[in-house]
Design a protein around this nucleic acid. Structure first.
Lengths: 208, 208
DNA sequence: CGGCATCCTCTTTGATACTG
DNA sequence: CAGTATCAAAGAGGATGCCG
């Protein structure tokens, strides 16, 4: 992209990450950690393969991304954020908070990937009972199950299944999000088709 | 811009403000307040006039910008942020903080406008003596003098001149910034050509 | 398969000129 | 002052091919 050529931190930041797809690539790496090229494509529906290759090179040249050759038997290239790249987290959080209201209104045919749930959940959920024992919620929606772990005052969201989750939520992304973010009443959510199994007290522990 | 079409707050935020120039237009309106078309062009060196018109229409349609017809005798159109637009401030602050280190390294022929000083100064300066009487610093660099007002624990930066500033700084943008952000020693700054007149104790009151 | 590179078409941008 | 009109150049998107 053409540089704005301004002596201004905002403009120079945008010179680096203002191009189409760049910040979404950073989002993927922040949520997913070290990722293969193909996994990145999975999380960026619609990206042209040449653009993904271009952007990864640019981000690498800018020092935000590094590529590592995974040792055998995996023997594949892994892309990961550098420390400088990881420092973009506050930018993505601010964007996510600002964009929240846009997502909550009716949605049509948007693409969805389960791991994107980490954005609103880590932004808005809190552990209100940090001294209580750890609890987990399994969320079944989208392309893979997600695990919400509430422990020691922090809320962690990552792909995976729990052995014995305290609560299991099964439904559409907006149902699950509505309930967890306390924007949809419990009974409304169930009426709209959300399946809730387990100990619902963990909900009030994390809801905003 | 083409929508990313993702059920993700970050992607939907970028659908609205991810286009080239959009966030810089928001920056201008945040710093300058209600502005005329021509003033916006002044603060966005290099923007094509058709693009500025396009972006303003898009931002207006998205509900971030409103246009007001100023009453006579001014009788001109003023563009201003809506409340929703003003809520982008944390996004720009995060971008500005991330981009700070990029600006501090040697710079060549970048364009500069004095009012952009508000970005780093309001991000990093603090009033460490909120109970002391108000003080002002006049900064003379770039296209217009800027006023830094320290009062009641807050630091305000805006265009203008003070009647009796406590301190006047005259020099290049990087000299002034280096001194105010405490990244350049006082004596180094003077040796490189920065002119410092007045009561330098206000410096330690605001420096990070 | 994973990780691209090439080719082609379409859209967006930038530069400049012009207008109510 | 606040734009619109025009046109060349750059970038994005989609399909496909290549190579370990």
């Amino acid at each position: 992209m053409r540089s704005y050529n301004e002596y201004c931190a905002i403009a120079q930041a945008l010179d680096v990450v203002g191009e189409r797809w760049s910040l979404l690539i950073v989002r993927e790496l922040l949520i997913q950690g070290p990722s293969r090229y193909t996994d990145l494509r999975q999380g960026l529906p619609g990206i042209a393969t040449n653009l993904l290759a271009d952007r990864l090179r640019e981000l690498e040249a800018a020092g935000l991304v590094k590529r590592e050759e995974a040792p055998p038997p995996v023997a594949t290239t892994l892309f990961d954020l550098t420390e400088r790249g990881r420092q973009l987290e506050p930018v993505l959080q601010a964007l996510g908070r600002w964009g929240g209201p846009l997502v909550r209104r009716p949605i049509g045919d948007n693409e969805f990937r389960s791991h994107w749930l980490a954005v609103p959940l880590e932004a808005h959920l809190k552990d209100h009972r940090p001294d209580a024992p750890a609890q987990t919620i399994e969320v079944r929606t989208g392309d893979q199950p997600m695990l919400v772990e509430v422990k020691h005052g922090s809320v962690d969201v990552r792909p995976g299944k729990a052995d014995h989750p305290d609560l299991v939520l099964t439904g559409t992304a907006s149902q699950v999000l509505g309930l967890l973010l306390n924007e949809l009443e419990f009974n409304d959510a169930k009426q709209r088709g959300l399946k809730v199994e387990g100990d619902t007290r963990v909900l009030t522990r994390v809801q905003p």
